[in-house]
Simulated scan of single mutants.
Amino acid sequence: MAHHNLSGAFRATCPQELIELIIGETDSADKETLKSCALVARSFRPTSQKLIFSDLTILPPGRDSIIALKRLGDVLSASPRLALHVRTLHLVQPGFYKPCVWMQSDIPPLPAILSMLTNVESLNVRIYNWDYFHSNCEQAIYALIARSSLSSIELKEARLPTNARLLSLLRCLPASLESASMLNVYADTHWYGHDDPKSDSAELHQLRLASLHLHSFAPALFHWTISAVDLKCLRHLHTMVRKDTMNVIQQLLDGAVYVETYHLFFGSVFSLDETPNLEKMQSLRTLEISVELDWGEIEEVEGEGRHNPLNDAMRSLDTAPHTIEHLVLNLKIWDPDELYHFTGSVSFAHLAEDRPALRDVVVRIASGYGHSAPQRGIRHLNAVFYRLHKRGLLTILAV
C-alpha cells in the first residue's frame, strides 16, 4: 500500500467557517474542551478563545486565590483583545462570612481587570456583605454597572447596610438596560426622606426595562422602581408580596398595564389585609402564582384560626383579567393534607367557565414530607380541578 504524504501542498485544509461552526457547537461552560481545541492548531485558537472568555467568573468557588486573580490580570494585560470577548461576567463571593480575595484592598488587579471589560452585556453579582469591599473595588463595580453595553443585571443575596448604599448602586444602571433581577436583596428597612429617589429624580436614568424581577426585602428597591422605571415598557414581571411592600407593589401593578407575564410570589406567612389587584393589567396572558404551605410556620389569626396563604392567592386570582391564557400554580407543601384547603375554592371551581381564553393550567407540587407526598397531592388536586381535568386543560407535576 502506498503511503501518501499529506504535508505541504497536498495537506487537506478545512474552511475557517466550518472550523468556527464546529467549535461554536461546544458549550462555553466546557472550558477544558475549549482549552484543548485552542491547542490543536492556530486556526482553532480564535474561536476557542472567544468562547472561553465569553462567560467569565471572578472567581470560581475553590479557585479564589491571589495567584489566580493576578494570573487573570496578567493574561488580559498581555492580550487585551481577550477582554473584549467577555459578554457575561459573574462576580462571586463563595462564602457568606468569609470575604473573597478580589474584594480586598491589597489586591490591585480587580479595578484594572474590570476596566478592560468594555463589552459586558450581562452582569451577575452574588456578593453577600458589601461591607467587605474596599472602596476602590466597589467603585470599579459601579463603573462596570454603568457601561452602555450592559443589557442585563442580576443582583443576588446582597446585604447592603443602608438604603443610600443601595441607591448609589441603582443610580449607576445605564439607560441601555433591558432586564434586571434583584433577588434576596437586603437593605435598611426604614425609608428615609433624604434617600427618597423622588428627591433625586434628576440623577436617575429613566429605565425602559422589558423584564423586572423583584424578590426582595428592601422597600427602597420598590420605591426606586416606581421612580426610575418606565412601567409601560415592562412585559415580564416577578414580585414577592410582603406587608411592608404591599402598597408600593400595587402602585407598580397599576402602572404596568402592558405586562404579558406576571409571577406573583406570596412569601409571607402573616395575614395580608390587602392582596395585589391585577385588574388594570389588561395585557396579561400568563399568570404564575407561588404559594408556600407550612402550617408549622403559618400564624394563627385571632378569631379566624390559622391564616391560609391560599386565600390571599385566590383573592388576587379573582382580580385577574379574563385575557389570561396560561395559569401556573407552584405549591410548596410539607404535609399533603394541607392541600385540602383547596376544597371549596370558588376561584378554581369555575375557573374555566369564568375565563374562556384559558388554554391550560399547570400545577407544580414540591414537598419536603417524602416521596409519596406529591403523588398524594396530585390525586387530591385532580379531584379539586375535575372540571379542568375533564376539559383536558390541567397538568399536575411533582417537582
Rank of each mutant, 00 (worst) to 15 (best):
M1E: 07
S7R: 11
G8S: 04
C14V: 15
E17P: 09
E17C: 09
I23A: 02
S36H: 12
R45S: 08
Q49S: 02
L72M: 03
L76V: 09
L76N: 04
A78L: 10
S79D: 08
V86D: 01
R87I: 14
G95N: 10
I113C: 01
L114N: 01
I127F: 06
Y128H: 13
D131V: 12
F133D: 06
S135G: 13
A146W: 12
R147T: 00
R147K: 10
L155G: 01
S168M: 14
L170N: 01
R171C: 03
R171T: 05
P174M: 00
A180E: 04
N184G: 09
N184A: 11
V185R: 02
A187R: 00
E203C: 09
L212R: 00
H213C: 12
K243D: 04
D244E: 12
Q250W: 08
V257Q: 07
H263V: 15
S268K: 07
F270S: 13
L272S: 09
D273N: 07
E274G: 06
M281A: 11
L287D: 01
G296H: 08
E302A: 13
E304G: 06
G305Q: 07
R306P: 11
H322T: 14
H326D: 06
V328F: 15
K332D: 03
W334Q: 06
D337Q: 05
S345V: 11
D354R: 15
R355G: 02
A357C: 15
V363G: 05
G370R: 12
A373P: 05
R376M: 13
K390Y: 09
R391T: 05
L394R: 00
A398N: 10
V399T: 05
